[in-house]
């Protein structure tokens, strides 16, 4: 049970191969870090796994999540959570409704759904802020709320796209530990793209480098 990439290749709209074919297995509970020069297609790799590729990009090879081939199905059915550089909280929803947005339908009943969200808010240090405007949160609070929103949707894997790069350095450690401890607690595979060596260091997981394909 894991996230498995087999001979995954990506092509830009101009047909150019982004990196050498990638085969990678991320076991449950592990965080694998992907590093590499800018422009090599790290974010595009996450887009391909999450189902967010823009038109024109080509993707071949296989992406399996817990044995299920997901490369051909839409993003919303892949059960792959994504954390971007920004929290991307929905500006028209309150803090609590942001978290409730991804709550699966098997959690039934208003009271049950509400208390699930309240519990997650409490874990994120946001107890009692259900009805607040999401724009009123600080940077660190937004990052924690975004992670909780992602995890409440019960993803089978999480992708992190330079998730701490925009945070103040004073906050970065705290959010990093918050993020990785919560992901570890779920026991799901995670794939992180980063420029920051410190990110890779904290995960104590494997670190791979994406390289430009050798020119032929």
């Amino acid at each position: 049970m894991s996230l498995d990439l087999t001979s995954l290749t990506l092509r830009s709209p101009s047909g150019e191969l982004l990196f050498a074919p990638l085969t990678l297995s991320v076991p449950l509970g592990d965080v694998v870090t992907v590093m590499g020069p800018s422009g090599v297609g790290k974010s595009t790799l996450l887009d391909a796994i999450g189902g967010h590729l823009t038109h024109g990009f080509g993707c071949s090879g296989s992406i399996k999540l817990n044995g299920r081939e997901i490369s051909t199905i839409p993003a919303e059915t892949r059960q792959v959570g994504v954390m971007f550089q920004d929290a991307h909280l929905f500006p028209h929803l309150s803090v609590g409704d942001n978290l409730a947005f991804g709550l699966p339908s098997h959690i039934k009943g208003r009271a049950m759904r509400r208390s699930t969200v309240e519990a997650a808010l409490k874990q994120a240090g946001l107890a009692g802020r259900y009805d607040d405007d999401s724009a009123a949160l600080s940077g660190g609070q937004r990052a924690r709320a975004a992670l909780m929103r992602t995890l409440l949707a019960e993803p089978e894997a999480v992708l992190l796209d330079e998730p701490f790069s925009k945070l103040d350095s004073s906050l970065r450690d705290e959010i990093r530990h918050f993020t990785f401890s919560h992901i570890a607690a779920r026991g799901i595979p995670a794939l992180m793209v980063t420029h920051d060596e410190a990110d890779a260091h904290v995960t104590r997981g494997r670190c791979i480098a994406l390289k430009k394909p050798e020119s032929d």
Partner: peptide, 16 residues
């Protein structure tokens, strides 16, 4: 409208 906002919604299971 930020594309990532919509990608976030999709990754949370929201269809088109």
């Amino acid at each position: 409208l930020n594309r990532r906002t919509l990608d976030s919604a999709a990754s949370l299971g929201a269809g088109p």
